[in-house]
Design a protein around this nucleic acid. Sequence first.
DNA 1: CGTCTCATTGACACCCTTCAAACGAAGTGG
DNA 2: CCACTTCGTTTGAAGGGTGTCAATGAGACG
Lengths: 227, 227
Amino acid sequence: MSAALAIATPIAGPGFRSVAQPLAADRDPLGVEGFRVAFARNEEIFGEQEPAEFACRVVSGAVRTYKILSDGRRQVSEFHLPGDVFGIETGADHNLSAEAVSDTVVFAMRRRCLDRAAAADGEVARRLWALTLNDLRRSQDHLLLLGRKSARERVVWFLVDMVRRIPAAIELSLPVSRQDMADYLGLTIETVSRTMTQLQDQSLIRLRGGRLLMLRDRAALELIAAA
Amino acid sequence: MSAALAIATPIAGPGFRSVAQPLAADRDPLGVEGFRVAFARNEEIFGEQEPAEFACRVVSGAVRTYKILSDGRRQVSEFHLPGDVFGIETGADHNLSAEAVSDTVVFAMRRRCLDRAAAADGEVARRLWALTLNDLRRSQDHLLLLGRKSARERVVWFLVDMVRRIPAAIELSLPVSRQDMADYLGLTIETVSRTMTQLQDQSLIRLRGGRLLMLRDRAALELIAAA
DNA sequence: CGTCTCATTGACACCCTTCAAACGAAGTGG
DNA sequence: CCACTTCGTTTGAAGGGTGTCAATGAGACG
């Protein structure tokens, strides 16, 4: 199919400068055509204020979207896990930067294709809108967390959220570093670390090797996370 | 017109329990039919987790949308000024509570009407989506503010934003109280107040009577707000 | 075993919060 | 016209939670 071939051709757009290797072309669950792209750990996927030429669904790995101030202060807006979509825009440019947290494969959809699919099928348009609204809802919860919650509440909320989102057995491997956690939670790396050991001392969680996490008293943790 | 009459009938939905007096029926700039409703200062427009039966455009006055924790800590998500739309959802319930900041008139649109208009006209659907995306962009800027900015930067950002959004001569009347500002900025009322007097001492702003504001050095303020 | 990266821990400083009181403007009644 | 109240704002003093700076610890890898 020539269409598929055209889509699978190497990419040179501003958002995908440093693409490793375009993989097979396919269709998203939304029915939108696109192609897989692999990104190495910490590689930029797109930058803030770059033209929003692509939106992506995470296939494997994880992605952080964030904003950064001139002096380096960084705020992570969201971590996108497999199945999540990021980079949707209606305006011209991206409002956030996106980077691979770990080695990651995304399914990239061209803006043109998305717009066309939305215009052609009201149901696709409605789903894209619903995706955006879901991002907004999470963002509003995040505002409450950053504006009004203590370090302890923030960290617990994050851990509970991760366990909810990542299908796992009793033990979970945190997909992000302490620095990423800190920048997501509006804290410093030291405060995150101290809070985690404090939670462990209180037998609420168990940590192994920094990344391996077990919730030992999930009910108590959910209570702290809720408020 | 019977349709208009039906729309203008008094409302008893959970979101509009304490409605003062339904006013004239009309159409929104989006082309969606609806009706005007007046709310007194501090009156609830809808509550978090209530069925999202209405979305509203502010006609006059101002609206705050917010979340609240069990112990009373409150985070204001956004202030909606005349022309702004709030309360749009694709899910069943509202994710935020909404209250009138001052005596306010809103143009209320039934969820049914919105959904129908979006389904019938792709351009309306696209505009609703764009509205949601705009909320999301502002929310993401807000995250950066709450997570990473100092009290001084937060207050200045707020003031500059207000001056941008409110058409006014040299002097502006702040539409919200110090408590609202504090809950929007993730600070206490005292910190907001102290920061404002500090800005005044540095000749960056001038305050009169608590609410009347003049930016005396807008360029400098924009610099502080930007980072 | 050395190096690198990331996480933990400690000591101290500071920004913002907390608690409290005073202030000011607007409205009410004597 | 002047107490008096009320509500919102400002100011002050003190304390605490989190940040900063610095050192140590722990895996991963060559």
